[in-house]
């Protein structure tokens, strides 16, 4: 009996190591636009099922960081790996061509600030487009999954409508369903609620909260402090292109360690006065 348990224990570290291997690992990432240094020496990892919220003032490099992860922005230096496989640079050390890059990008799903739905396609066509024509998956399966996804984001009834006929919140929920349809290892959200009317923010955050709870691995650039506090497993605070602070949301919001994080949170004091106390 005990030997059997020992045997199990002996295998456990290996099993755990594989399950705990980060979905995303970013190391020594730097990026400049001309003489402007946008990101300098960024290091972080995201584990399976984590929801990492990237916070920081406007112009701190949050969106650029997100866009570097799938090489929509080409990093100047550093290494980005998804599921252990390096993005952008092939095994020979050469920069991937457009086709190889495109293939790598299918491993991440992306949700855009301005929705970026394809205007010539209906809601359901937006969702099935890339699974059918990029991933070349079987039509019946893809359509069946699209129905389930649209149900999940509450838009099954709108499946044959063109995006132009939807509200901002509905568009963004289609955007999320479209990203999920790729079965990505990682979902990237680039300020998904910033372009929405205030009364429409809630419906999008509700969908994102569900995804976080269901164990989807997500990196979310956002200004929604309440969402970050409640749904994130970890906060990354970015300022002037560097990670200033990273930690559990509770610790970050109630006791930020850095002055810059404290100042940043203070600017949201109107809504978070119960949370943030100015430092001595």
């Amino acid at each position: 009996m005990s030997t059997a348990l020992d045997a199990l224990d002996a295998t456990a570290p290996w099993v755990r190591a594989s399950a705990d291997a980060p979905i995303l690992s970013v190391s020594a990432l730097s990026k400049s636009f001309g003489s402007l240094r946008v990101l300098s020496d960024i290091h972080f990892t995201v584990g399976r099922g984590e929801t990492v919220c990237v916070l920081g003032p406007s112009g701190s490099g949050k969106s650029t960081l997100l866009r570097c992860i799938n090489w929509l922005e080409r990093p100047d230096s550093g290494r980005i790996a998804i599921d252990g496989q390096q993005i952008g640079i092939s095994s020979g050390g050469v920069v991937m061509n457009d086709r190889e890059l495109a293939l790598m990008r299918t491993r991440t799903g992306m949700v855009f600030q301005h929705f970026a739905l394809w205007p010539h396609l209906t809601v359901v066509q937006n969702v099935v487009e890339a699974p059918l024509h990029v991933q070349k998956r079987p039509r019946d399966e893809v359509y069946a999954e699209a129905e389930v996804l649209l149900e999940r984001v509450g838009l099954a009834a709108k499946k044959d409508v063109f995006p132009a006929r939807l509200s901002g919140g509905q568009k963004q929920r289609v955007g999320i369903a479209r990203a999920l349809a790729m079965k990505p290892a990682l979902l990237l959200f680039d300020e998904p609620t910033s372009a929405l009317d205030p009364e429409l923010v809630g419906e999008v955050l509700a969908v994102m909260r569900d995804l976080a709870r269901d164990g989807m691995t997500m990196v979310v650039v956002t200004h929604e402090m309440a969402f970050a506090r409640e749904a994130a497993t970890r906060i990354i605070f970015l300022d002037l292109g560097s990670i200033v602070e990273t930690g559990a949301p509770e610790a970050f919001f109630s006791a930020p360690r850095s002055d810059r994080a404290r100042q940043f949170l203070l600017r949201y004091a109107g809504t978070l006065s119960d949370v943030v106390r100015p430092g001595p």
Partner: peptide, 19 residues
């Protein structure tokens, strides 16, 4: 934006143009 979304969803070259 829609073209950028095309890039993010794995489109490139002629397929990007056509679809």
């Amino acid at each position: 934006e829609p073209i950028e979304a095309g890039l993010a969803f794995g489109y490139s070259g002629l397929r990007m143009f056509r679809r």
